[in-house]
């Protein structure tokens, strides 16, 4: 709880700052008693959230025959987690590792680039009153309302004419733009970078880009991490775009690869590899969950900055 407030304090939110002090001093007149009923009801929801994940972890420890013969939330006869992982990583000459590598490439370049562009542009929109600024803002906000998938087919046709399909650029270039990230950075930069600080730096004779690089960037850091995190999630989870852009399996990201494995269980020459799909799914989730745990402070405080402005 204090974590969030720290974040908002750096963002210069006076209200929260006062609130933190009050809570810390323990003089809040509104400190209700804990409710067992409420905790119980919420526990039910917690169970619903966790059951599929628990099932996934348990299932990843089962052999294919145990999967089919034992009940879902029980462990199987053999503990096969490590042999499953080994099999997942080596199946078809290690294609899974290739997909993991592709996903990492798309995430590092795509999400990294998206964060960079959104940060610089959001800062520009927040701190400069240039003509045409409102138009830019309206167009970009309007773009949030356009379904990504509605754009995907036209983008595919256009990229196909440009000879970009079946290249990594077909995935990376569209990932570079995050209108939501821009919005978040714009709101964040407005409160995180005081105008007086910029004025002081200007009086010292620093150029605009130097000011950005040496003064503002540091103040924007919590917002940047938040935008990066959401960009990483959306690139890591990207499915529709690679599905239509790529037909070469060696360019697939994990999401498309996994569904291809899953589809192997259907149709004529069916060759089900349920244990590999399940273990592969677990391996796909783990890195993101770890990142979210480690960076809690950022995504929680950054989002609150986004919702202040409305």
């Amino acid at each position: 709880m204090t974590v969030i407030q720290e974040g908002t304090v750096t963002a210069g939110n006076v209200v929260s700052a006062r609130r933190t002090r009050k809570v810390a001093a323990g003089i809040s007149p509104l400190r209700p008693r804990k409710s067992r009923l409420l905790t119980g009801l919420m526990l039910l929801y917690l169970v619903y959230t966790l059951v599929p994940l628990v099932w996934l972890v348990i299932s990843a420890t089962k052999t294919q025959s145990d999967l089919l013969s034992t009940s879902g939330l029980q462990f199987g006869h053999d503990f096969a987690l490590f042999s499953n992982i080994k099999e997942t990583l080596t199946y078809r000459n290690g294609i899974f590792l290739r997909w993991l590598g592709n996903t990492l490439l798309y995430v590092v370049v795509g999400a990294g680039g998206a964060t960079l562009l959104a940060t610089v542009a959001g800062y520009g929109l927040a701190k400069y009153r240039f003509p045409g600024r409102r138009v830019v803002f309206a167009v970009v906000l309007g773009a949030i309302a356009i379904p990504n998938t509605a754009l995907a087919v036209p983008t595919f046709l256009m990229f196909s004419d440009m000879g970009l399909t079946n290249t990594v650029w077909a995935i990376i270039v569209p990932s570079l733009v995050s209108p939501f990230g821009l919005y978040l950075m714009w709101v964040y930069a407005e409160q995180a970078v005081p105008q007086e600080l910029l004025e002081a730096a200007r009086i010292d004779g620093a150029g605009e880009f130097r000011i950005f690089w040496t003064v503002s960037l540091r103040l924007l850091a919590p917002g940047i991490v938040t935008v990066l995190l959401f960009a990483v999630v959306s690139t890591w989870n990207n499915y529709f775009l690679p599905l239509i852009m790529l037909s070469k399996p060696n360019l697939y990201p994990l999401t498309v690869g996994l569904t291809q494995w899953s589809n192997q269980a259907q149709g004529a020459g069916a060759d089900p590899i349920y244990n590999l799909v399940i273990t592969g799914s677990l391996l796909t989730i783990v890195p993101l969950v770890v990142v979210f745990f480690l960076l809690q402070r950022f995504w929680q405080s950054g989002l609150s900055a986004g919702s202040v402005k409305q």
Partner: peptide, 13 residues
């Protein structure tokens, strides 16, 4: 937590 699970994996699950 489920937000960190790729949509594709959620559907497979």
């Amino acid at each position: 937590l489920p937000y960190a699970v790729p949509g594709v994996v959620a559907v497979l699950l």
